[in-house]
Amino acid sequence: MALASQKDFFSGLMFTAVGGSFAWGATDYTVGEGARMGPGYFPLMLGILLAILGTVITLQSFVKGNPGGDKIGAFAWRPLGFILGSNLAFGALLVGLPSIGFPAMGLIVAIYALVFIASQAQPGSKLKATFILATILAAGSYGAFVKLLSLQFPVWPAFLTN
């Protein structure tokens, strides 16, 4: 039996592995039941659902796809690096790195850094569009997390609020 789509085959395997890992990890917590869910219920059900979806996609990769086999392209290192880097920068800027003396820069600075670093994953990104997106995300996050949910974390850099 030949693969009709390498992309679907490997995507399905990834979904199955990640879903199975989440479901297996969720068994360390109290699962409960539908009426009284424990902390492991949602990750268990989501992991099982993802594993089933992955299995279906993997099986369909043998029958659905382009006649040429729908090959996997080159690995996209640039987007991977910038997206992972932007998330690491967000975390470091939001809470700071006290072990090396780097202060918390707060939510607004962290969101701007996240958006500007992540925008570099796509060559030719526009500075104006990135700035507009960062402003909308910063304002929305401030409204949702600080005002509506009353979460307690730094919004601005410490040296600006003291």
Rank of each mutant, 00 (worst) to 15 (best):
A4S: 15
S5L: 10
Q6E: 13
K7G: 07
G12S: 14
G12K: 09
L13A: 08
F15S: 08
A17K: 04
A17S: 08
V18R: 12
S21V: 11
F22I: 14
F22L: 15
A23H: 05
A23Y: 06
W24R: 13
A26L: 01
A26S: 08
V31K: 05
V31E: 04
G32F: 04
E33N: 15
R36Q: 11
M37Y: 05
G38F: 14
G38E: 14
P39S: 15
F42P: 02
F42Y: 08
P43I: 07
M45L: 09
L46M: 15
L46P: 01
I48E: 00
I48H: 00
I48M: 08
L49H: 00
L50V: 10
I52P: 02
G54W: 01
V56K: 10
I57M: 14
T58R: 03
L59Y: 12
F62A: 12
V63E: 03
V63C: 07
G69F: 07
I72K: 13
G73M: 03
G73L: 05
A76S: 13
F82M: 13
F82W: 10
L84T: 15
S86A: 14
N87F: 15
A89W: 02
L93Q: 00
G96A: 04
S99K: 09
I100S: 00
I100R: 01
G101K: 02
F102N: 03
A104C: 10
M105N: 08
G106W: 01
L107N: 02
L107A: 02
L114K: 05
L114Y: 11
L114W: 12
A118I: 03
S119C: 04
S119T: 02
Q120H: 07
A121Y: 09
G124T: 07
L127S: 12
A129L: 13
F131P: 01
I132N: 08
T135A: 10
I136Y: 00
L137Q: 04
A138N: 12
S141M: 00
Y142H: 10
F153G: 01
W156P: 00
T161M: 07
